[in-house]
Design a protein around this nucleic acid. Sequence first.
DNA 1: AAATAAATTAGGACATTGTCCTAATTTAGC
DNA 2: GCTAAATTAGGACAATGTCCTAATTTATTT
Lengths: 213, 213
Amino acid sequence: MSTKEKLVSRAVELFNENGIEYVGMRELAADLNMRVGNVTYYFPTKDDLVMEIISQLRDLNSKTIGPDCSSIIDFLSMYKQVFHNQYQYRCLLLSFVHLVSRHPLFAGNYFATEAKRREALRSHLASMVKNNYLSTSLIGDKVELVVSHITLISRFWLSEARISYVNWTTEQTIAHYLNLLSDILLPYATDEGKKQVDNFRKELGGDLPKTWK
Amino acid sequence: MSTKEKLVSRAVELFNENGIEYVGMRELAADLNMRVGNVTYYFPTKDDLVMEIISQLRDLNSKTIGPDCSSIIDFLSMYKQVFHNQYQYRCLLLSFVHLVSRHPLFAGNYFATEAKRREALRSHLASMVKNNYLSTSLIGDKVELVVSHITLISRFWLSEARISYVNWTTEQTIAHYLNLLSDILLPYATDEGKKQVDNFRKELGGDLPKTWK
DNA sequence: AAATAAATTAGGACATTGTCCTAATTTAGC
DNA sequence: GCTAAATTAGGACAATGTCCTAATTTATTT
């Protein structure tokens, strides 16, 4: 593993643990028995380092989000993997708003992939309708509403979990938000679709957090 | 207006414009023709200042979120006001995750009010069921799912809008997320409830963003 | 193998940040 | 008008990201 790779790899770990803005360049360097100047040689600014990490997550999700999504089970399983990817790079999701709203480079990068993701989501929904798992009434504005729900959940579940469900395990948390996702599809699910949602939820069952106090 | 009040008032403005972490204590002081030492006299740490702003929003929302919520219209109108309150203190919502996950004081404060809000939400839903606007099938785990959807939306709509819908007006943005909110209730709405949702959406209609490109 | 060029590492300097401390100044109370 | 409190000003501190230059290591060429 090259120095640059070690740098990124350890940065992700430390950023995940303590948050991007709470891990200094010197701290990262010291952790790897390096000096600051050495880090800035590979990544002149901290944003450059973050940008590298962003690309890694984007690539990972691009592999996960395929074009085909014939059933609800496929769809939810795919998002399960997306959630795990995001957890692996949770530092990004937890700082995304600040990163994007400040840095034009982040913003441009984000807009491009976001538009693609939204379009992919539409196509997934359409194919679930075609395969008779979702009702044909899911058209027009209703599609956009479902898409909006799903993007909101998949973008902020980690943030909410961080502040509201701190004592949950990762598996519990992911199960909870997958449950929410399935809940968004449910109103449009056909009988066959409902069966799939039920099956998926049964698999979730063991992980779902029990108590609401 | 006392010096302290002027300080808080201007801080909210600057924080809203540029983000809490991007407005320095010296910048705030200079804006009011003061010096840093003078600011720290009233607020020894920046977190103290933020905490004061947090209390203001909490008080404002406490006034808005009443115990009675007999109809869906009432419910959605109430949340419309909540959204406007949040917009008024948007700097907080945009930095909440970092604030809460770092500072134990914020966290404790947040947990207490959050539990109350969630409980209030359950009671609102129950009263809408009682008044026959929502189906009696809305019980148990389903209530918790609806509550989870609503809390997610009302906590992160501003964050998402900041990064995804930057070109929308405030009214458009709020209309969009109120639409999402109503969409969560819709599957459980009775015929009478559906009428209310329709009416509410008609009022929204003019503000709702048109294009999804 | 030696010399030269390139890549990498180290270390210090800079402006900026939040925070703290002390002295100066203003205000209020008697 | 004097004393004490409240307020304001100003400097100092450690820590941050960033930048720049010198030292050192590694690779390439002669």
